[in-house]
Nucleic acid binder design. Structure first.
Length: 480
RNA sequence: UCCUCAGUAGCUCAGCUGGUUAGAGCACCUGACUGUUAAUCAGGGGGUCGUUGGUUCGAGCCCAACCUGAGGAGCCA
């Protein structure tokens, strides 16, 4: 390899040595005689300063060193005479590997709005903010695998294409190779899916959980980490049509074990970010602080980004049952003063975002694990409790994000599971493969799902989920 | 899908009660400057005012529909 990455150079400055670096120009400034180039190669948030004397390189070459251009620079590493950086490179040789027309390159050396950058999603990774976000995203992906691997969990690739339509997790994207203008029809005039690629209807997966359960009841502890698709017409800062989900599934774990694992997992990830992404987090924290300076006090978060991360890492999560949560909400000030849009008056209703927000941000002031929801508002596979009114479900609510984890102990008893499926109008016929887990060697088991981008929202402090995934897919938007 | 707000230069925005030739900062270009840090200073170019239709002597401004974006709600991770 004939070049050094900027992170390595800044970590261990080889003052006096001649090195080659390659990267993209952030800015160029200076006088007629001497130019200062801020070069970034993506290895770190920090730029490397290149000093280039105009006389040495000629005006023609200097003019090509514009924002966005790609350079290869060779020169001596020296201590910087300026105050903004410890070291810099005295340019001996500069190759412009790729020019960038300053009139046309959309990312100018100035502050851009996130909305504008969203339209330039193919280039926004070159900005300081998105570089930081995507480096943290990688660190979190790596930490997910490390956490589970260190605990003896096996990663399972569950299918992305599926014919399973009974997961009940939301609208699905249909996958077909039939001609939409002229599909084969049955005698009744319906589309004949037997003629389709899979000889039946197929969709993109909405969850790997059911396949994950099959693996857990053989390998013990497993996790999935894959793309997930929802065709819901959701237009919010918290929803994507394509997102990444982590779904661990553990044999012999009850709800309590499940909740403990989820809490450990979230703390591990947050701590991993704090320990390994310091520079990027500091930048995002400063960015958030600057943004909030213009906001009225009541719209600003009470804690800074780093304080929020440490709060999660250093405190036990609060615990309460759905029934207790409803009592808290019923007796809360906003409920009595009729400030909620959805008043809390009876047991059995689903909690709205405003209620979750109140529990997390006003009442407990830290993450909350809510358990034992009414069985009518939860999925068919959740284990029915002895009261026959609630199921062994848990949601973990995070400040600023809302629901970040949803999980449950699964119903392992065949007779109860099949009667629940009847209640939910799920045809047993298509689910025999799933029911085989209960038919042969069934056992207590649990699992949960973590929306990876929701985690990213919390860790980076970004407020729109479209800014924590490189190429967001939302209703009406599938660019790039 | 529903509610609210917005759309004017490459970007971020101002534009009065409807009235002459459309404004600023940044970015870009040109020039000045021997070490800059969002460099600085001087000058310059750059506009189908989201689209279509309507009201009016006259529309960036008023009305309608549509398109796009943002925030909130629902659905959920």
């Amino acid at each position: 390899m004939d070049y050094i990455r900027i992170k390595e150079l800044l970590d261990q400055p080889k003052t006096g040595e001649t090195v080659t670096v390659k990267g993209w120009v952030k800015t160029r400034r200076g006088s007629k005689q001497v130019n200062f180039i801020a070069l970034n190669d993506g290895s770190t948030i920090h730029n490397l300063q290149i000093v280039a004397e105009t006389e040495k390189f000629g005006e023609e070459l200097i003019k090509k060193i514009t924002t966005g251009a790609c350079l290869s620079v060779t020169g001596e590493v020296v201590e910087s005479k300026g105050s903004g950086q410890a070291i810099e490179i005295l340019g001996e040789n500069i190759d412009v590997l790729g020019e960038s027309d300053p009139e046309k390159f959309p990312l100018q050396p100035k502050k851009h709005s996130l909305e504008f950058l969203r339209e330039k999603a193919h280039l926004r990774v070159r900005t300081t903010t998105f570089g930081a976000i995507y480096r943290i995203r990688h660190a979190m992906i790596f930490a997910v695998h490390k956490f589970f691997n260190d605990r003896g969990f096996f990663n399972v690739h569950t299918p992305i294409l599926t014919s399973s339509d009974a997961e009940g997790a939301g609208e699905m994207f249909r996958v077909t190779t039939l001609d939409p203008k002229n599909p084969p029809l049955t005698e009744d005039g319906e589309v004949d899916w037997k003629e389709d690629f899979f000889e039946k209807q197929a969709n993109l997966t909405v969850s790997g959980q059911l396949e994950g359960e099959l693996s857990a009841l053989a390998l013990g502890n497993i996790y999935t980490f894959g793309p997930t698709f929802r065709a819901e017409n959701s237009n919010t800062t918290r929803h994507l049509a394509e997102f990444w989900m982590i779904e661990p599934e553990m044999a012999f774990h009850d709800l309590k074990d499940n909740a403990e694992l989820a809490e450990d997992f979230l703390k591990y990830l947050v701590n991993y970010a704090l320990e390994n992404c310091e520079d990027d987090l500091n930048f995002l924290a400063k960015r958030e602080e600057d943004e909030n300076k213009n906001k009225p006090a009541n719209e600003r978060p009470a804690l800074s980004l780093l304080e929020r991360l440490k709060m999660v890492r250093d405190n036990d999560f609060a615990f309460c049952t759905y029934t207790e949560a409803i009592d808290i909400l019923k007796n809360s000030k906003p409920n009595k003063k009729k400030k909620f849009n959805y008043p809390v008056d009876e047991w059995g209703v689903d909690m709205q975002s405003e209620h979750e927000k109140y529990l997390v941000e006003k009442h407990f002031k830290k993450p909350v694990i809510v358990t034992d929801y009414p069985k009518d508002i939860k999925a068919f596979y959740m284990r029915v409790n002895d009261d026959n009114k609630t199921v062994a479900a848990m949601d973990i609510l995070f400040p600023g994000i809302g629901e970040i984890v949803g999980g449950s102990q699964r119903e392992e008893r065949m007779d109860i599971l099949t009667s629940r499926m009847k209640d939910f109008n799920i045809e047993e016929e298509h689910m025999q493969w799933y029911l085989d887990t209960r038919r042969f060697g069934s056992c207590v088991h649990s699992g949960f799902g973590l929306g990876f981008e929701r985690l990213m929202l919390f860790v980076t402090g970004m407020t729109n989920i479209r800014d924590v995934i490189p190429f967001p897919r939302t209703p009406g938007n599938c660019e790039f």
